[in-house]
């Protein structure tokens, strides 16, 4: 208790809460990305690093629909999500399906390759310079009890809550959601029950593309924030998926929020109390938390123990 006193005294209560809110919002964005990881892993057992490419393309396609083709902003979001779904389906059909039955390592390397290839495609099409989405949310805030919440952050949190609810309902009540669970658990048994693994894989990749496009939008808002490195942010969300449990939508969201909060709070206090940790401890802190949680719970907070690891 005594050790905490100087820390608490150095930052005002408002700053603390402000950064807490900011960490929650950031965590919501990470959660959206992590949900994209989860849906592919849950259905196929593959860790899809190409998820970063979906995030990137989602951000640029929203820009394309809204700024270049001057379509209504909210309709642009829906169109970008539809494009993300289509991109996921096409990549699964053209690339991933040919790798069914290959070693997980091979498939993972292909998804990493797709991430870097799509990064170059985006640069070739839209250029390397920053683009301004010009979204209607930037610059608008609501203030509650002295704590600011930007419209951008509120929308990100709303998107995450909605997608999580939809995921839970999908996996619990829809036949395709149940088919995904069955296929991931035992593809041959699922096939014997008439479940089409091909359709399951395709839909899973499509959903991942759709959700990642929404995540891309949340990172693209703000002033001139669209840039080719947006796809790499997906790697920052990776610990969220791992510590939440690789096949758990709820775990992805909780994991995302934990990572967002840890990053934000480390940043808030690092300048004063973590100088001994070298430069940029906030970049490392999420991975430290991930390692600690995995030491205690090897399958993550909400993961299923049967999950295969790579």
């Amino acid at each position: 208790m005594n050790a905490l006193a100087p820390v608490l005294a150095s930052v005002s209560g408002t700053d603390f809460i402000q950064n807490l809110v900011s960490g929650l919002a950031l965590g919501s964005k990470y959660a959206l990305i992590a949900l994209g990881f989860v849906v592919v892993f849950r259905a196929t057992g593959v860790i899809n690093f190409a998820n970063g490419a979906f995030v990137l393309v989602g951000a640029y396609m929203t820009y394309q629909f809204f700024q270049t083709w001057e379509i209504n902003f909210y309709l642009s979001i829906l169109l970008a999500m539809a494009f993300g779904f289509l991109l996921g389906v096409v990549l699964e059909a053209l690339v991933l399906r040919r790798l069914v039955g290959e070693a997980p390592f091979t498939v993972i390397m292909v998804t990493i390759g797709l991430l870097f290839v799509m990064d170059n495609v985006v640069t070739a099409v839209w250029g390397a310079t920053n683009l301004d989405l010009g979204d209607p949310w930037t610059g608008n805030v609501v203030e509650v009890g002295g704590v600011r919440m930007s419209h951008r952050d509120l929308w990100a949190m709303a998107f995450t809550a909605t997608v999580l609810a939809a995921f839970l309902a999908f996996f619990r009540f829809s036949s395709m959601g149940l088919a995904m669970r069955a296929t991931a658990a035992d593809p041959e048994a699922a096939l014997a029950q008439g479940i089409s693994a091909r359709a399951v894989y395709r839909v899973a990749w499509g959903i991942a593309g759709l959700v990642a496009a929404l995540a891309g939008l949340t990172f693209a808002t703000g002033n001139a924030n669209i840039q080719p490195t947006l796809g790499l942010i997906a790697l920052a969300a990776f610990p969220a998926m791992i510590l939440g449990g690789m096949d758990s939508p709820l775990g992805a969201v909780i994991g995302g929020i934990i990572i967002g909060l840890v990053q934000q709070m480390t940043e808030l206090y690092a300048f004063e109390y973590l100088e001994w940790a070298g430069r940029n401890p906030q970049t490392v802190a999420p991975y430290v938390v991930m390692i600690i949680i995995l030491l205690v719970r090897p399958y993550g907070l909400f993961g299923t123990p049967e999950v295969r690891r790579v």
Partner: peptide, 23 residues
């Protein structure tokens, strides 16, 4: 201060830095 751009850097909000500066 804030982390320099790198392939492994997480998303930046600059909230904590602005808290410091405003404070």
């Amino acid at each position: 201060e804030f982390p320099a751009p790198s392939p492994t850097r997480a998303a930046q909000t600059f909230e904590s830095q602005i808290s410091q500066l405003q404070g």
